[in-house]
Design a protein around this nucleic acid. Structure first.
Length: 677
DNA sequence: ACAGAGATAAACAGTA
DNA sequence: CTACTGTTTATCTCTG
């Protein structure tokens, strides 16, 4: 099953292992990581600057043309000819709207305002992202032995890609609108020059008010895009630009998810359709809700109506009641060019917000990642991995996760794995999977999982909830090996608990073996096909008495039964786990020994409970004792399904069945290929 | 300072 | 012989 490809992934391990005399190694090789990039930067920056200047000029020209109306439809068309438009670009804009169409819809000033706004937004985004992007350069460094950087690199690259996709999408939209027919590069760069969401409202007014076009034009003429150039120059993502030709960025649509493109296309299609025809088809994105249909408004509430006024962008018309609003909607915001244009603008607004969201998410990720690092040892963003095993790295979880802060991994948004209960069987493969972890060798060195235990953080839930985080971040999950092993045995996910583990296969394996042999809670059961490691819940619980040391508050809250809402997810989870351990009835909990099996999954009660909690209320923060107990009940049901399995212990012949590779491979698939080297 | 728990590394034996 | 697995031992680190 998963075993097959493991070998490939593992390749990295060997090198690490050797030098790994755990603690000493810690930082050694990785540190160099960031240097190389800087070298080329200057030239890259210059190049960027140049490109941006060119783009700016092109954008200005375009704007001027648009504003002056010099461009004849024909000329625009000519420009779109393959000769002038990069092939890739042509390919990426099947649904492109011709400039003429755009012009019909939006007046030159409107166009300019739109463009300007987009530029402002983009610039802002770019600025915010700059730091990260910068890191990317480092990330891209293929030098082997810098595994520590891996997770960061992954994250950053992903973010970079995401950003590129967003940008491309943005460009695509512009193209669609005819804003970027000829000079995608210029347009794109100009977009990146200045983004100022604050102008949205004004833009809306401009767009909506055709009569104001003259004023807008004057305003437009007065605009000096060059002012942004300086900023943009510095702010422009060096790495991205450096590594990816601008035109490729534009073309980069290849990066854009096909689905999204298809969706966009559909959306645009519906758009253009409505444009051309008078078919009274309500104007709304395919599959979406009508934006201003003639029906449905009667429902009494309308997304475009609130507080007695029309919420149509830039409208704010007062409507006493729904009927009046509907009338207003049909009269003032009927299906016409203006409304269409406004919808387009709104579309872009949404996109920009999405970009913003992505950016903020990125920031959050960075923050979380940072918090995983040793506070006293501030390291460059990209170097966290280097933190080698100095056990000191994370002396205390409390340091890493201040009380007020949720564990980085814990994010309400993270998907929760489905509950499962039953015996947990650890197959060798699973072990392997896990085995990647240990690597003190790599960076996060000796994080004392003990601490995590101390806090009684339910690994299963933690891991489940922060699966993505751990997969992408080379951060050692704050759990003991025993906990991790158990988690793996209980979890459906055969993959190593984290990228960190994945990177340290040898260590992980050794640790797993060691722990399995050492801890009483892991019982090896001989089977027909071989042997199976099972988890003895009783012993496991013994081993890990629910101490609430870490969070007196938690205890207090638990006792009072009131504090749930105020607790962060981790603590809640911890609470849940500890509580569960106490509440667990034998029936619910796996029998004395749950077989460990990767394939199989049993969730531990605690984890499952927690998960349930989370699933019930997206973010369990508000759990009340009542709810909590309820969940416990829910948990029981699943038990039936697996009762047999517990004892049976899904046999995964520990031994040879599970080639490490499988797990690793799985992880690899999830991860960008680069870092694994 | 001490003991306990956990993390790592490594040696060793057994097995396929 | 090689690669694993499983067991032990030794050494550290951290925490209580």
């Amino acid at each position: 099953m998963m075993v097959e490809s493991a070998s490939e992934t593992i390749r990295t391990t060997p090198s690490n292992q050797n030098g790994v005399s755990s603690q000493s190694d810690g930082g050694g090789g990785r540190e160099g990581g960031s240097n190389g990039d800087t070298n080329g930067e200057i030239s890259q920056i210059d190049l960027l600057h140049l490109q941006q200047q060119q783009a700016l000029q092109a954008a200005r020209q375009f704007l001027l043309q648009q504003a002056s109306g010099l461009n004849s439809p024909g000329s625009n068309e000519v420009k779109q000819s393959p000769v002038q438009v990069p092939v890739s670009m042509a390919m990426m804009s099947p649904q492109m709207i011709t400039p003429q169409q755009m012009q019909q819809i939006l007046s030159p000033p409107q166009l300019q305002a739109l463009l300007q706004q987009q530029q402002a937004l983009m610039l802002q985004q770019v600025r915010n992202t700059h730091a990260h992007t910068h890191t990317h350069t480092l990330t891209l460094d293929p030098l082997p032995g810098r595994h520590q950087l891996g997770s960061k690199q992954l994250a950053f690259q992903q973010q970079l890609i995401q950003m590129q996709q967003l940008q491309q999408q943005h460009i695509l939209n512009l193209q669609r609108q005819g804003l970027v027919p000829l000079q995608p590069t210029a347009a794109m760069q100009s977009l990146q020059q200045a983004m100022c969401p604050s102008d949205l409202q004004q833009l809306w007014k401009e767009v909506s008010g055709v009569q104001s076009s003259e004023e807008a034009l004057k305003q437009a003429e007065g605009l000096d895009l060059s002012t942004n150039s300086s900023n943009s120059t510095s702010a422009f993502p060096k790495a991205a630009s450096a590594h990816i030709p601008l035109h490729s960025l534009v073309n980069g649509q290849s990066h854009t998810p096909k689905r999204d493109r298809a969706r966009l296309f559909e959306w645009i299609s519906s758009f253009t359709k409505s444009d051309s025809g008078d078919d009274h088809v309500p104007f709304y994105p395919k599959g979406g809700h009508p934006i201003s249909s003639h029906h449905e408004e009667h429902a009494g509430s309308h997304p475009l109506y609130g507080h007695g006024e029309c919420k149509w962008p830039g409208c704010e018309a007062l409507c006493e009641d729904m009927g009046q609003f509907i009338k207003h909607l049909n009269n003032e915001h009927a299906l016409d060019d203006r409304s269409t244009a406004q919808c387009r603008v709104q579309m872009q607004v949404v996109q920009q917000l999405e970009i913003q969201l992505a950016k903020e998410s990125e920031r959050l990720q960075a923050m979380m990642t940072h918090l995983h690092m040793r506070p006293s040892e501030p390291k460059p963003f990209n170097q966290p991995l280097n933190l080698a095993s100095s056990g000191s790295l994370l002396k205390r979880d409390s340091d890493i996760y201040p009380e007020g802060l949720p564990h980085p991994p814990t994010s309400a948004a993270t998907p929760i794995t489905p509950l499962r209960q039953g015996p947990s069987v650890i197959s060798s493969s699973s072990l392997h999977t896990h085995s990647h972890s240990h690597s003190h060798t790599h960076g996060v060195g000796p994080i004392r999982r003990r601490n995590s235990d101390k806090y009684c953080t339910p690994i299963a839930s933690e891991l489940a909830q922060n699966c993505e985080f751990y997969k992408n971040a080379d951060v050692r999950p704050p759990f003991t090996y025993a906990s991790l092993i158990r988690h793996v045995s209980l979890s459906n996910d055969p993959v190593a608990p984290s990228l960190f583990h994945l990177r340290n296969t040898a260590t992980w394996k050794n640790a797993v073996r060691h722990n399995l042999s050492l801890h009483k809670c892991f019982v090896r059961v001989e089977n027909v096909k071989g042997a199976v490691w099972t988890v003895d819940e009783v012993e496991y619980q013994k081993r890990r008495p629910p101490k609430m040391t870490g969070s007196p508050t938690l205890v207090k809250n638990m006792i009072s039964g009131l504090g749930f809402g105020s607790l962060n997810a981790s603590y809640q989870a911890a609470l849940a786990e500890s509580s569960l351990s106490l509440l667990n009835s034998p029936s619910l909990v796996s029998p004395s020994a749950a077989s460990l099996n990767m394939l199989h999954v049993g969730h531990d009660d605690v984890s499952s409970t927690v998960e349930q909690v989370n699933s019930n209320g997206s973010c369990s923060p508000t759990l009340s004792p009542h709810q909590y107990s309820h969940q416990v009940h829910v948990k029981e049901e699943p038990t039936d399904l697996e009762e047999d399995s517990r004892s049976v212990s899904l046999m995964a012949g520990i031994t040879h069945n599970l080639p490490l590779p499988s797990d690793e491979r799985d992880l690899e698939e999830d991860l960008p290929t680069e870092d694994l080297e």
